[in-house]
Design a protein around this nucleic acid. Structure first.
Lengths: 345, 345
DNA sequence: TTGAAAGCGGTACCAC
DNA sequence: GTGGTACCGCTTTCAA
């Protein structure tokens, strides 16, 4: 009799046979609940060990109507933002006694794939859902919020039926503005992201503009176009305006491309020009770059999102909550007081 | 009659009732196979739509003995390395018609959590498994390779029973060595990672040392200790050796900390000192930093890993394969010919 | 073409 | 304490 190459996974019936008991007994022993003699229990556990038993989550979930699993929908695993958030969610979920399964989109067919990923998670009958995607619109989520507790994490989601936890973009923008103002900048450029491109980035850059104007600072607004090089492409025009002493970018990624362009133009940062970013997470936080930015509290966002989800499980009639969390200003080496004679550069 | 707040998900029986057919008919209509009258089909599909039906993957997988799902075990979602790999795997799996579920460890209880994540995936009865973790040892994987096709991606896994796809570390190290040699460097320091800390990084740094020596270059080997600051801490001693004109780092992360330390020491890169890294992925690839490094072919690693997995599904008796993939040298602005009078610096 | 019924791998209730 | 049995939601024969 030759060994099968691809052997099927053993079931509790296999264990029962091996241990000479009924499958009910096996179930009780494995679950560690219900009455079993100590002797039977150990025979069963032995057999399970010997056979390399791994429980079938499908069968178990089907009958128990519980999966002890939380689902996380992540937009794009490549971005450090989502990676950090994902890890934070994962960590807290484990602490709460839940397992986590994640599904992601792929860059090219973004929206369609995210819908599919959502279906995957729902079809697994996760007991709670965290959506981390600036892309997936509320109307794709709402049909299921009554069915499974759902929290949107990492983006403000104003929809009255959807809970959300996110970085307070307005506050963050103001912190950066205050930083520049206190350094003495009087004419500042903001790279404004159109609402259609990214609501989050629109919100924060719009808040930068408002904050600056409220504080009486001359504000030059440059609306960004789509495309990878877009932020940096705005630089030449800004340099032409000799009174501008600082540039506020919507994101650290964009900021880096702006810094690169400034360097190529021979503009020293921060001596000739101050530059700010937004996010403050991932490899770009290295002191080698020393970005002045606003660090999003992603660890806290993740924690609070899970906590909210678990509360929601307890009390399904809880009113919707929208939880903004404060970020922290990171004063790096890309900002300084404006040069005494900006026109000289 | 008040609406339930948490309504349970509709089943095919609900649809059957709604459409006035049997649940068998619903199943056939939803699967799009088996004979059904066009009229019944559309009534069923309508009802499913109306009820917001989402199939129960557990019930379906249980009876069909197929899940159409691949499992990905990822060590740490925070690192760009794993993020990139994860995304590549995801993309290819979708192309192959599979869904992907991911489970990850958490940083603190790393190994224990990875084992748990592996169990989660296995309990879901994924039809293939990709392990992306330098941490999880082969002996945790081998018990299941007969049961579910498995590929280790992103690290060389020499175990004769485990398939693997990974970046060719030796070749990559030699490409970097050749680059430095062709620039004219004659005395080079290598930051060697101990085997116990990371086998992958050990392999590549050891290959750097060998490559340099084979080419007759003076090689200064500095064995790194554990700890976050370790790579940079080696810098002062290297600077004391005035003949060293280049430093080879085990990773881009480490390289960045070395660059930072050099900058603080007033050493210009690449004028006074050349520096190389390894990985070439993620935000650190920005031209602003211009790292000279070896870019790991992670997209290809991901693709090939999935392809291998699917082949394995076809033919379970396929012999084990270990597939090294060549990386690409990225010549940045952190390397240049050595200064004419290194002792002058 | 359609529906009844068996059964996937578990859990839980039930007599014994 | 133990084993028999119904059933979770679905797919898949098999008759009608």
């Amino acid at each position: 009799m030759t060994e099968e190459k691809a052997n099927r996974a053993p079931t509790i019936i296999d264990i029962a046979r091996e241990a000479g008991v009924s499958k009910s007994a096996v179930s009780r022993a494995l679950l560690g609940q219900g009455r079993i003699s100590e002797e039977a229990r150990s025979r069963i556990l032995d057999a399970a060990q010997r056979l390399g038993y791994v429980k079938n989550a499908m069968a178990q979930g089907l009958v128990a109507q519980r999966t002890h699993t939380l689902g996380v929908l992540v937009r794009d695993a490549v971005r450090p933002f989502y990676g950090q958030l994902h890890a934070a969610l994962q960590g807290r979920a484990i602490e709460g006694g839940y397992r986590v399964v994640t599904a992601t989109g792929v860059r090219d067919f973004a929206l369609a794939e995210e819908r599919r990923a959502l279906q995957t998670l729902l079809s697994l009958r996760v007991e709670g859902l965290v959506v981390c995607s600036g892309l997936l619109p509320a109307r794709d989520i709402t049909p299921f919020v009554e069915r499974v507790p759902t929290v949107v994490a990492g983006r403000p989601e104003p929809h009255p039926a959807i809970n959300s936890v996110y970085c307070d973009e307005e506050d963050g923008a103001e912190q950066l503005v205050d930083h520049l103002v206190s350094l003495g900048h009087r004419r500042v450029a903001v790279l404004l992201v159109p609402e259609a491109l990214s609501f989050t980035q629109y919100a924060r850059t719009a808040a930068m503009v408002n904050g600056l104007r409220e504080r009486g600072v001359d504000t030059v607004v440059t609306e960004l176009a789509d495309g990878r090089e877009a932020p940096a492409d705005a630089v030449p025009a800004l340099l032409a305006d000799r009174e501008i002493t600082a540039i506020m970018c919507p994101q650290d990624d964009a900021m880096v491309s702006v810094l690169e362009r400034l360097r190529r133009a021979g503009v020293r940062v921060p001596d000739d020009m101050s530059v700010t970013g937004f996010d403050g997470i991932g490899p770009l936080t290295t002191p080698l770059l020393g970005l002045t930015t606003l660090r999003q509290p992603l660890d806290e966002v993740g924690r609070r999102a899970i906590d909210l989800l678990l509360e929601l499980r307890e009390d399904r009639s809880m009113p919707t909550r929208h939880i903004p969390l404060r970020g922290a200003l990171v004063a790096g080496t890309t900002t300084a007081p404006p040069p005494p004679h900006p026109a000289r550069r």
